[in-house]
Amino acid sequence: MLRVEALFVERGGRPVLHGVDLTLAPGRTLAVIGESGAGKSTLIGAMLGIVRSRSGSVTWDGGDLRTAYPSLVMQEPRAAFNPALSLRRSVMEPVRARRLELPDGRIGRLCAGLELDPGLLDRRPHEVSIGQAQRLGILRALIASPPIVLFDEPLSALDAVTQKHTASLIAALQREEGFAALVVTHDLGYAAAHADDVVILRNGRIEEAAAAQSFFRAPRTAYGRALREAALALGALERIA
């Protein structure tokens, strides 16, 4: 169980996150939604210990989150890989770093789940499509069976069709593997389709936190309603007439 309590982060003397609280159980998906500058990426950085927080705690089952080896899927699929290494080497990095024994057939099973040809692993990052690169990024994030995966705008570099396809592959793997997923996104449509809970972040504060179903039925805050109307106006969500 992920528990973020009273997380407070400052940058250059200005508060970026003012006391953020979150919880996330295994097998569940939490969408953290907000506009640029709301503090979404800072939140991920602070959870991973890349950004220093001034106060607050981030724990998994009571211990430091970092000792649970959370993994990260980044926004720019190709930039997430070392261009000089084969994709196999990059994908296996979490296994090598922790000297884990990989169960037989693990790569094959994950590749099948992500609809990836295992032959792609012998290529370099620039020799695969963006959509494939992002699925390889997900493969790397899942290879060592982490209890929790952090996704930082995982779909925004992909086109609309690829986005929906990739999101459904992630959801299917989550049902099999049982990891908790924290997804930072500005895409309400994704959250409506795949999240169990949503948190609306605005100016470093939690504006609204709710079960996804109740949020999309009736947002409680004005900003939540504006987000929902925007998603409808942009065709990310559709009303039943």
Binding site: A193, F216, R217, G235, I240
Partner: peptide, 14 residues
């Protein structure tokens, strides 16, 4: 057909 199949993320009852 691919585009239409993946047109929206979700349909809201409202």
């Amino acid at each position: 057909r691919r585009l239409v199949a993946h047109r929206n993320w979700a349909v809201l009852p409202c």
